[in-house]
Design a protein around this nucleic acid. Structure first.
Length: 277
DNA sequence: TCCCAGGGATGAC
DNA sequence: GTCATCCATGGG
C-alpha cells in the first residue's frame, strides 16, 4: 500500500519530459503521478511546483536515491548555453527546460535498450512490464540469473521477437560474470563502448543509450532515426552521413554535454517541439 | 497492404 | 568501408 509521502526539492527539473523521453521503460503515468521503481522501492512520483512528492510504502528516506536517479544536483546552465547556440533550437527548447538525463541501474539500462532495437517505446514498455510480471515479483525488473533460468521461448511468448536471443545471451553472460558491469563502469567511454558492443544485439546506437542512461558516460550520443533527421537538417544539409559520423561530430562539438544535447534534440523532435521538414 | 518503430547481423561488392 | 536484406511484432 502506497501511503507515506516524502518531499524532495527539485529545482530546474521537468519530471514529465524526463520520464517521457525514452530513457527508461518502467515508469507509467497514472493521473498526475508516475509509478515506477527506484533503487528497489516502488514509488509514485508527482511534481508539485519545485518539489517532488514521493508516495511510497516505507518510512525509509529516499531523497538521496531520487536526487541521484534524476541527476538533480547537476547545474544545467552549460547545456542551456549550448542549446542557445543551435539554430531553431535556441528559440524552441525552453518548453523542455529541466529535462535531465536519468542515472539508472546498469543492468536495467542494458536490458531495456536491447529491447529497443527497431521497436517503439510503447511496445518496449509493454514488454518490460511482461518481464516484471512474469519473471519477477511484479515490482522489480528480473535479474540476469533470474532470466537465465527460463528458456528463450518464454521470452518470445512475452513479445520480444528476435530480441529474445539477445536478451537471453546477455542474461546468461552476466549471471556468470556479474563483475563485468563494474568493469564497464570503470572504463573510459571508448573502451566501455567496445565492451557493451560485444553483446550480441547491441550495436553503436544501443551501446550509446546504455552508456548514457545506465553508465553515466555523458559524451555518448545515440543516433536513432529521430536524432538522425534533426542532426542532418541542422548540420549536414543535403548530405547523408553515417550515424557514426554524426556521433563523432557531436562529441567533438559538445564534449561531455553531447548526451544532454542529444536528449533535448530527441525529445524535442519526437514530441513536435522541434520541427523537421 | 504497406510503412514505421530510440537497429543489428550478415553477406555481397 | 558501404549497402541491401532480413529479422518479430503491433499500431497506424
Amino acid at each position: 500500500m502506497i501511503s507515506v509521502i516524502e518531499t524532495v526539492p527539485a529545482k530546474d527539473f521537468n519530471l514529465s519530459a524526463t520520464l517521457e523521453s525514452g530513457q527508461v521503460f518502467g515508469f507509467q503515468k497514472q493521473g498526475q503521478r508516475y509509478q515506477g521503481v527506484i533503487s528497489g522501492h516502488r514509488l509514485e512520483i508527482e511534481a508539485v511546483s519545485s518539489e517532488l512528492q514521493i508516495h511510497k510504502n516505507s518510512d525509509e528516506l529516499l531523497s538521496d536515491s531520487i536526487a541521484d536517479f534524476f541527476d538533480l544536483k547537476k547545474d544545467l546552465r552549460p547545456v542551456y548555453g549550448l542549446l542557445n547556440e543551435i539554430d531553431v533550437v535556441s528559440t524552441q527548447w525552453q518548453s523542455m527546460r529541466g529535462l535531465r538525463l536519468i542515472r539508472q541501474n546498469s543492468w536495467e539500462g542494458l536490458a531495456g535498450f536491447i529491447l529497443s532495437s527497431n521497436n517503439n517505446i510503447k511496445r518496449i514498455m509493454k514488454i518490460w512490464m511482461n518481464l516484471v510480471e512474469t519473471m519477477s515479483d511484479g515490482v522489480q525488473f528480473p535479474q540476469p540469473a533470474t532470466i537465465a533460468r527460463f528458456h528463450e521461448m518464454k521470452l518470445r511468448e512475452l513479445g520480444l521477437g528476435y530480441r529474445a536471443s539477445y536478451l537471453m545471451s546477455a542474461a546468461r553472460f552476466l549471471a556468470n560474470n556479474p563483475e563485468y558491469l563494474q568493469t564497464i563502469k570503470e572504463a573510459p567511454y571508448s573502451e566501455a563502448r567496445d565492451k557493451v558492443m560485444s553483446f550480441p544485439g547491441i550495436g553503436e546506437k544501443v551501446a550509446d543509450c546504455v552508456l548514457l542512461y545506465g553508465f553515466q558516460k555523458l559524451e555518448a550520443f545515440p543516433v536513432d532515426v529521430w536524432v538522425y533527421r534533426i542532426m542532418t537538417q541542422l548540420f549536414f544539409k543535403g548530405k547523408k552521413p553515417t550515424r557514426e559520423k554524426i556521433a563523432e561530430f557531436a562529441r567533438k562539438k559538445w564534449g561531455v554535454w553531447a548526451g544532454y544535447v542529444q536528449q533535448y534534440l530527441f525529445h524535442g523532435v519526437r514530441c513536435g517541439i522541434l520541427n523537421i521538414n
